[in-house]
Design a protein around this nucleic acid. Structure first.
Lengths: 250, 250
DNA sequence: TCCCAGTTCCCGTTCAATGGGAAAACTGCG
DNA sequence: CGCAGTTTTCCCATTGAACGGGAACTGGGA
């Protein structure tokens, strides 16, 4: 727009500003935001002010800025994420109650696993997965099933790399990953020992559409050496329930 | 901006476009959006295209436009709504398991009750509350506790009206509402028979901060003539748990 | 008190955004 | 299949919302 050497659009700037908020940086000043979004101070203050006026950001009298509830509301009330999550929640609760571990729901978004829900279990171990957080497909059990039961173009794209290392157990060799995906397809589930945390094993099953493609992944996080078969069975049953719920008319 | 008789800002237009998506209108064409947002067809198509490019909207090859998952992700990952909901979910699950009814979590937003979570119960009755949906404060049990345990300026603002009627049972007389609020404060909970559905009673308790102000409301939806005391007790316990969880360092 | 960083506000400048309109594409109906 | 109406894409002259430097103000820390 006018008088800017950068040629950015307003829309792109808004997105850049929103991207400066993260799960661990939920409060910022306008100056912080401007620095992180690469905006001149005057512009940062002005645009943040506009977003506050529009309800997308929220600012308190001390100048602390947060993502606005109005944005959450608009983003959530009609979103596919809410629909999938609501379809899955009862089944996930049953899995969590029986397996007594963290239970997660992820979908494919921009070639990554995006987590829509995570039911914590108080006695279960730590896990870095967050709601509205992402992981590379190759680096987590959820991602493996989304990938293995995704389209061939997706698989080729991911296998073309780079396969970033998230932990010492992350598969980074395309050949090895290709074999892992074949095994996931054969078994109908993924086991990922130590992929995220050394002390844990991720177990995931796909939630599939009529064509057999994965539309979501259900997973639990077990202790590293725990038996996986009971969890797989619970997850399978849950995935069937979610598939049924998602196939029902709205 | 340039050449527009309307004088709208880009930000306001983006918000207007997002507002055209509702829980019952999750899919639209660009032309639909433009009509509803009051934009000329060319502009509608262009702005929707920009938002799709930015990930805020999502468009399929058939031109069906939805709210984008990227928007959901950015709005959710650092939002206060997620934080409150995550603090409350375990307690809500316990309420739901024991009371065996729909269980809800709401907060105050722009002088209305905004619902952050709603755990459905399969055998429970219908209820119109939606996640990321709103209700007037005076017209629901959740709203009553948010109002009764809110600030005096809030109460005066709401009591100044208009008190819109949502159902035949909605209190629309300021005097009566004032007395109801005093009763809610005295009791420490709200009972709202028939406020939303003739066949149901809403029961809500406040989740309070150190100063005693309501920061959220926990509620259940009971059959109209069901006893309320057991639910109140469960909700109270749950509210204490949520207060503890919210007071803990992140 | 001084210094520094953040914030607010002003204002000349300007280009991203605008929307009318034409053409192409699509859809639904007879 | 043809037709009418609608949607979508694309072009382009126009322009005012958006820009950001800079001055003044504010608040916090040493």
């Amino acid at each position: 727009m006018a008088n800017s050497p950068s040629g950015d659009s307003v829309t792109d700037r808004i997105v850049r500003i929103l991207e400066t908020f993260t799960p661990t940086r939920t409060v910022q000043t306008a100056s912080d935001i401007g620095r992180r979004a690469g905006l001149p101070p005057s512009t940062a203050h002005r645009v943040v002010g506009d977003l506050v006026d529009a309800g997308l950001l929220d600012r308190d009298p001390e100048g602390r800025v947060r993502v606005g509830l109005r944005l959450w509301e608009l983003a959530t009330r009609s979103s596919h994420a809410l629909r999938v999550r609501q379809a899955a929640l009862p089944a996930m609760e049953r899995v969590q109650a029986r397996v007594r571990e963290h239970t997660q729901l992820a979908i494919l978004e921009q070639d990554e696993a995006l987590f829509l829900e995570r039911l914590s279990h108080p006695q279960a171990g730590a896990n870095i997965t967050r709601i509205a957080g992402r992981l590379p497909l190759h680096a987590a059990s959820s991602g493996l099933v989304l990938l293995a039961f995704g389209g061939p173009e997706l698989q080729e794209r991911i296998l073309a790399g780079p396969l970033r290392r998230v932990s010492p157990s992350t598969p980074t060799d395309p050949g090895a990953l290709r074999r892992t995906l074949a095994e996931v397809r054969r078994l109908g589930h993924a086991i990922a020992p130590g992929y995220i945390e050394e002390v844990s094993t991720g177990v995931a099953v796909p939630v599939r559409d009529r064509a057999g493609r994965a539309i979501a992944a259900l997973s639990v996080v077990l202790p590293r050496e725990a038996p996986t078969a009971p969890a797989v069975e619970e997850l399978r049953r849950a995935a069937r329930d979610v598939e049924t719920a998602l196939a029902a008319p709205a």
